[in-house]
Computed example of a mutant assay.
Amino acid sequence: MMWTTPKELKAQLARLWERGELLRDGVTGNNRFPLRLAVKGPASADITERFDAVRVWATELANTSPLRLEWQEVRHRVQGLQRIPSGGWIDSMDDALGWLGRRREWNRFSSLVEMTRLQNPSLLPWLEKRPLQALELEEEWPRLLAVVEWVRRHPRPAIYLRQVDLPGVHSKFVERHRTVLAELLDLGLLADAVDTAKTGVAQFAARYGFLDKPARIRFRILDPSIHAVAGTSCPDVTLDAGSFSHLAIEVRRVFITENETNFLALPNIPGAIAIFGSGYGWGALAQARWLERCAIHYWGDIDTHGFAILDQLRHHFGHVESFLMDRASLDAHVAFWGREEKPQRGDLHRLTQEELRLYDDLRDNRIREGLRLEQEHLSFGWVRERIDQLLQQD
């Protein structure tokens, strides 16, 4: 039987709740009631062949509270004039909430709306957009409002989140709710209090003018004659990006590698340092403009993302050369070929012709589908030989 049942009518109404539409009305003041629900009833043949079943169906709908039925008169050649349900109506929000068993949630959400309307009405659009999430955050909502109000009163405070002094609010609370707070702060702050160039959860502090822990750069001295730390030969050092940008050491050559073992295993090389790379994102390293005076060799995986990272690094240092990211290195290590699960598909515009040919071969699966060679699989003899070739060019 394809006729609409009370359960299906209730499901139509429930979908409005599940999409947040009913709660949204509590913010906007929209009144969608009386609300018509679609009813699919029997055809003429059903009235002829299943008249008793039709009567039972119509009676069941008529006895469903709080449903108010819309009736259609049908003149049937056998059964005569019949009244058949053609639609269902819910007359009020209270009827809808009662049928769905959602009065308690409605009251809780209404309290959140009233609290927000009194304390910071600029945040009401967030409640309208995310009413179900607001219910989940009911317990935290007063503290979220308090954080927004504090930042509104102290725009771009230039302190650490740990220093925000609010009852019940600590840095972990802010960190846990950064995504929600970012949306609320964007609504609640003046435009000049938000640095829109800083995006994403990782840049939350910078976006709203808080201090953040500095980015750090790890490097190794590869030349024993370079004295970066008194009394230590070839130290492994980590500095904040600002300090690294002012580093005053005699360096002619820089190797950047994404693999820590390779970073640690690189041999002594005259006038050189190694930097432990950070994948996508070179903003911290870009502060060190003294690197422009050095030969820079980037050693990444031979896969599409490796070339994409190289391309991004060249945005900051256009003279970077790839190292061990060539077809010869790939072909010499067939036994270690692996698979790249989610290849990069975009066009890259900062690669050399040779790099671009290999990138296109990998991206377009011309050699093998999803081919990659991770940098740690290159034999160390092969690495030493390439380093020697570089040094012979000096």
Rank of each mutant, 00 (worst) to 15 (best):
W382M: 04
Q287R: 15
F336I: 01
G318W: 07
R363F: 05
A288P: 11
L285H: 07
T199S: 11
V194M: 10
G283Q: 15
W89C: 02
L69Y: 07
G283D: 15
R152C: 04
L166M: 09
L100W: 03
A202E: 14
D91H: 12
L362Y: 12
R83H: 14
V78Y: 10
D240H: 11
R350P: 09
R218D: 00
V334M: 10
T116P: 02
L81C: 06
L356K: 15
E341Y: 10
M325G: 02
E354L: 12
P42G: 08
L313H: 05
I159M: 07
A197I: 05
H170C: 11
S379W: 00
S233G: 05
Q393G: 08
R143C: 03
R55N: 11
L81V: 13
L189N: 09
Y160L: 10
Q82C: 14
W282Y: 13
G87V: 11
R162S: 12
L123F: 11
W99K: 06
V174H: 00
D240P: 10
S243Y: 07
I273A: 00
L239W: 12
G271M: 03
T48K: 13
D303Q: 11
V174G: 03
E8C: 03
H246R: 14
T4S: 12
R218S: 02
R289W: 01
G101N: 10
A248I: 06
Q133G: 06
R152N: 13
Q287K: 15
H227Q: 14
R372Y: 08
G88A: 15
G29I: 06
R24H: 09
Q344L: 08
K198I: 01
Q72Y: 03
D364A: 08
L23Y: 01
E70P: 06
L144A: 06
